[in-house]
Amino acid sequence: MAAPAVIELDNLCKTYGDHRAVDHLSLSIQKREIFGLLGPNGAGKTTTILMMLGLTEPTSGSVRVCGIDPVRNPIEVKRKVGYLPDDVGFYHHMTGLENLLYTAALNGIPRAEAEKRAWELLEKVNLTDAARKKAGTYSRGMRQRLGLADVLMKRPEVIILDEPTLGIDPEGVRELLRLIRDLSRHEGITVLLSSHQLHHVQQICDRVGLFVGGRLLAEGNIERLAQQLFLQDAYVIHVVASPLDASLRSKIEAIPGVNKVEQTENGWDVYCQTDVSAAISQTIIEAGSSLFHLSRRDFGLDEIYHRYFEGRDVREGE
């Protein structure tokens, strides 16, 4: 029996007037998982997150976070869930440390304990030097890291990060992603992060959901995502051999599972349903050609994303 999911969305809908921001979204996220909600701007990611926190009421459908219904009991949910908004702000006239202590006070953490935890977290996010500087002087990356510390003040079971990597330099992104991964691995915190930046998501997420126009198009790890979206051409195998002639091409095309063969600069791209690398190499060698290179091209999220949107007009026309 599977453990109960930490976040469970069931047929969730949210409409603003005529606009359907979230459309029958069902999703479940397990404990200790890092889930990436991936989608373009305006796909309904933030709306979904707000519904999980009980800050917006769903039009229909149900949400459960840690087994609690955020519509009925938002405060209990917010005790267990930390949320980092996409453009997190702090009180400019207070220092980073004071901002953290204020959050602690709102969570009912006693002062002495709060101070200890604040210093621990500031060290973790590498802001010890800036702790006594006014938050107004912080750079975007520092603000984001302080935001992460702020979210962790209440020892959450789940953290929800909305576009955490937006507007941070590459070094800052790496640092932040490392922190997030550590949290999930060492402290058993479930992480849900939304983004439209693919490789960031790809680097750390266990599972990804592709979210477009309020609907979840596909979910799973990156391989499964590709299979779900491109039922036909799930694999592309790149072949370099000599000579490559028409008879060889027809032989390869005859292998079961191969859909098409395309000429590229220095070889062929074979699009196929299943991984038929072995059969291809065998065919080439039996045909008397010499095989120089054969590789399966893995789909990055970038490519998945790109290919999905490229093919969308065609698919919608069908």
């Binding site: 926190l53 800050l55 949320y83 702000g89 702090f90 709102l106």
Partner: peptide, 14 residues
């Protein structure tokens, strides 16, 4: 405007 409201609302307070 400072973005503190959404952070505040994520705390367990009514």
């Amino acid at each position: 405007n400072r973005g503190t409201l959404s952070r505040l609302m994520a705390q367990p307070i009514p």
